[in-house]
């Protein structure tokens, strides 16, 4: 199990080389979401087709997740940004990288792009938004209410009945993470970006959202605050776009990285 020691923790990662030779391959760094998520959600859905297309891929488990160390403290967005910078330095990834982040992973990607513009080629945000005051307020409330609900044993029984034992087990794991760390308190307390800082993220941004996801009320909101952002809405999908619609996400990513039209028509995409 390959790990890199950065910022006093061990980060579990997988570096997969693109299979097409000739010229430097673009590097895509995949950043997963919070809770029960890990590098598996990207690795098991996108690794094979993207590597076959010639993309170098870097997957890693965020601190406190998957097979990376779970420290009791250190969960502000800037901690996650410092980790990513340390990983790229340790693996000697010198060219600007494309970032793709799912949910909170996208928030980390936006914060990284703002802090390290020269190291970022582009950004794909899946059901995600930058760290802003409003985001911090919403994610703080979500983490607080999740922690409170999961502190009740009956919640796991209800989850098991409604979604099966597998989801109940995952929920128990998520609760342990929230109980054993300061994640729920620190994540919303990190440094946020203001409108001026957001306007300075000039790299191309692709925002992929589900029509019924977290940004359902205003799916195109990022286009109003970022200077170079395009949005794709995937119809009949909620926050689980990456896993539930992974074939569409794969085609969008390939089209994005190689700047060619996506090979799949995204049903109902109005643009």
């Amino acid at each position: 199990m390959p790990t890199i020691h950065v910022n006093d923790i061990d980060i579990h990662y997988l570096h997969m080389r693109g299979k097409v030779s000739g010229g430097p391959a673009p590097t895509l760094v995949c950043i997963h979401g919070l809770g029960t998520d890990s590098l598996a959600s990207f690795y098991l859905t996108l690794a094979a087709p993207l590597a076959a297309a010639g993309v170098d891929l870097l997957f890693y488990d965020l601190r406190g997740h998957g097979n990376s160390t779970r420290p009791a403290h250190g969960y502000r967005v800037e901690n996650f940004v410092t980790d990513l910078d340390g990983i790229l330095t340790a693996l000697q990834v010198n060219l600007p990288v494309h970032l793709v982040g799912n949910s909170f992973g996208g928030t980390v990607a936006f914060a990284f792009a703002a802090a390290h513009p020269a190291k970022t080629a582009s950004l794909v945000a899946i059901e995600s938004e930058p760290p802003t005051d409003l985001w911090a307020q919403r994610v703080g409330e979500l983490l607080r209410s999740t922690k409170e609900q999961l502190s009740n044993e009956e919640t796991f029984q209800q989850i098991a009945v409604m979604f099966g034992d597998h989801h109940a087990r995952l929920s128990r794991q998520a609760y342990r993470r929230l109980e054993e760390t300061t994640m729920a308190e620190e994540i919303p307390a990190g440094r946020v970006l203001d409108l001026v800082e957001l306007s300075q993220i000039t790299i191309p941004v692709l925002s992929i959202v589900g029509s019924d996801g977290f940004q359902a009320e205003d799916p195109y909101q990022l286009e109003g605050i970022l200077p170079n952002c395009r949005t794709v809405v995937i119809q009949d999908q909620d926050h689980s776009v990456l896993v539930e619609a992974h074939r569409q996400v794969r085609d969008l990513l390939l089209g994005w990285i190689f700047r060619r039209p996506a090979t799949t028509n995204v049903p109902g995409d109005p643009r």
Binding site: S38, L39, L44
Partner: peptide, 10 residues
């Protein structure tokens, strides 16, 4: 879990 499948794959 899925992350264990990744480890098994390695």
């Amino acid at each position: 879990e899925s992350i264990d499948l990744v480890t098994l794959g390695v």
